[in-house]
Amino acid sequence: MYNFDFEKPSTVADAVAALGQEDAQALGGGQTLIPTLKQRLASPSKLVSLKGIPEMVGICRGDDGALCIGGATPHVQVAAEAGDYPALAALASHIGDPAVRNRGTIGGSLANNDPAACYPAAALASGATIKTNSREIAADDYFQGMFTTALEEGEIITEVRFPVPEKANYQKFVQPASRFALTGVFVAKYADGVRVAVTGASEEGVFRWTEAEAALSSNFSADAVPSAPSADGMIGDIHGTPEYRAHLIAVLTKRAVAAAA
């Protein structure tokens, strides 16, 4: 680790101000950022902890019925308190291990946008809204490729709003070592259609499998899931080939639909 300054503001405004300093960086649960610092792969001048901002922690229902989760809410709290959206609570309960769930936050996960992370699939499949200190971003516009998002420098995710679906399920097939998603599929059925988001598989990061969405919107059953998508552009590494990941997408989508239905 290199030296850095540390601040723990209690309002979003103060956090935004603190992040104005050159090379300052937000700190959520630190589950990604701290290991990066330990390996000396990043050298922020200042870390601004978001964990002391009461308005960024907690879960409630919005006027439009959406489930609103504060950007600094840890996974353990989502697992315990997001009962109105069981698939989301279940997803949170399977992230990492208890230590990771106690510290890691939804805002940190979405800001990091790891190509194998779970929350991005939920946000994209739910058509969630990413609320920041300055604007609201639709999930469809937010995810822009591996580790890349629409966030500007110093912009903070303050809340994530999930429209609650009629039915939903997340199927995570774990990578044996990290137990992140080797491939994960989140299926959410709304009155106006079905959304299917895939994580872990594509070199472009989380994406919507629109072919499956179309098929499932007219017939929400496992049998309706199309055959595996093309392996082009899928990730190939020591844990699985592009073909394997493409195959898993179809298998997991079927299982998610079956579990949700």
Binding site: P176, A177, S178, D237, I238, H239
Partner: peptide, 17 residues
């Protein structure tokens, strides 16, 4: 696992199960 350049691909618990 090493790659053809002799780089250790399974160099942490993220990749070595």
């Amino acid at each position: 696992v090493y790659d053809e350049n002799g780089q250790l691909l399974s160099a942490s618990y993220m990749d070595y199960a």
